[in-house]
Design a binder for these strands. Structure first.
Lengths: 123, 123, 123, 123
DNA sequence: GTGGTCTAGACCACT
DNA sequence: GTGGTCTAGACCACG
């Protein structure tokens, strides 16, 4: 599994890692009990600090996507598909919420906002 | 023109000010050569730091919406409201596009995506 | 509120901070909306790295005990007493679990383990 | 004497080995001058690293439970099993004491504390 | 080899 | 001033 970092992105590096690992799990590229690259090796590959990778792995673990074993590494956890789907939906919802709020702050009516959305969805 | 700040919003305060001034310009509440409230008075009204207001005014000026005259204040610059509206709509559209694409990457159907959007808009 | 660090303890410094802030919240020393010391000032007081304090504050926030506002600081969140009680009970339970497991590993019968516990509780 | 390792336990593997050997000595399964399995053979049996077994044997020796003879192996040292039992009970007792004290600091009644303990023991 | 913690300092965004 | 992220390197515990 290949992880690609965009240093000039506004998205923190550790979050980019988190997102890509999650995506790998979702898409089946990463399967239960797969071993993630070690903190050190990934940090070396990506030419970033080991702490940054560590933080990403910490987030993944606290989100329940991996299980870390001291002295061994981080393993992909048993994925709960329902949980995963809910998380995905919530993510998209949050993005919509922000866009809608921005539209409202710009003084657009709900009707106008909906028509913008329709335009996009029908593309 | 009344500016309202939401402290618990995820949107930075200075951006909330910028957006509301832009909205005022677009809706005609603020007209060319109108004088914005002084940094000091606005910061006092909103009970926020003067530096925060200053930052908002700096952004407005660098975006070409105002002209600041040293010792006098910030004046609304000449703008085309229709053009501004299109620009802002385009911005919201782009946000929707990103959200929709993310949803599709997650394997959600257009129907599901629309229902997520509906959920948000009806909030 | 005074925080005391034991550098030679096996307990990580950041966890010591977390535990003491939680305790402060439980005991009422820290109340809703109280502002915690800034990351920098506390790190200076305790003569430890700012990152260590930051990590403690991150844990507190992800556990729902504080709300952090960028550029302002970390505030004590509205405490859910039921949640807090459950957390406390779970903590004690975990300690019991470890002790019971150790006793079993030592070959003690449940009866013997219970008698050890009774001895302590009746003290 | 059979040693069983639980890989998913929170207790380090080397400590599990130490505890089980101690238990064997206390219960009489292992007697003075008995030869422990070699580091290599035990690591092979348990499918763990030889370094891990080595560490366990080091701990046992430094705790005075075994004597290692270079080129020969680790032998069980002279110990008083009754004394050992008391020592181990005292250890578990201390753990209980800490847990009970923590529960009381949290404002739990003795009845509540006992019910938490019962919950665990009956698991 | 692995992860877990910590340091001392940097740069950025927000107030 | 505040928090948010990141670095480069250290030491420890576990395997």
């Amino acid at each position: 599994m290949q992880i690609i970092i965009n240093n000039s992105s506004m998205v923190p590096i550790y979050e980019q890692i988190v997102e890509q690992v999650k995506k790998g799990i979702r898409t089946g590229q990463l399967k239960e009990n797969d071993l993630l690259p070690s903190v050190r090796s990934l940090s070396k590959d990506l030419k970033i600090s080991a702490l940054t990778v560590k933080k990403a792995y910490d987030v993944l673990e606290s989100d329940g996507f991996t299980v870390t074993v001291h002295g061994k590494g981080s393993y992909v956890a048993a994925v709960n598909p329902a949980l995963l789907l809910e998380e995905q939906k919530k993510e998209v919802e949050t993005d919509f919420e922000r866009a809608v709020q921005k539209g409202r702050r710009y003084g657009l009516s709900d009707k106008e906002i909906r028509s913008l959305f329709d335009l996009i969805l029908e593309d």
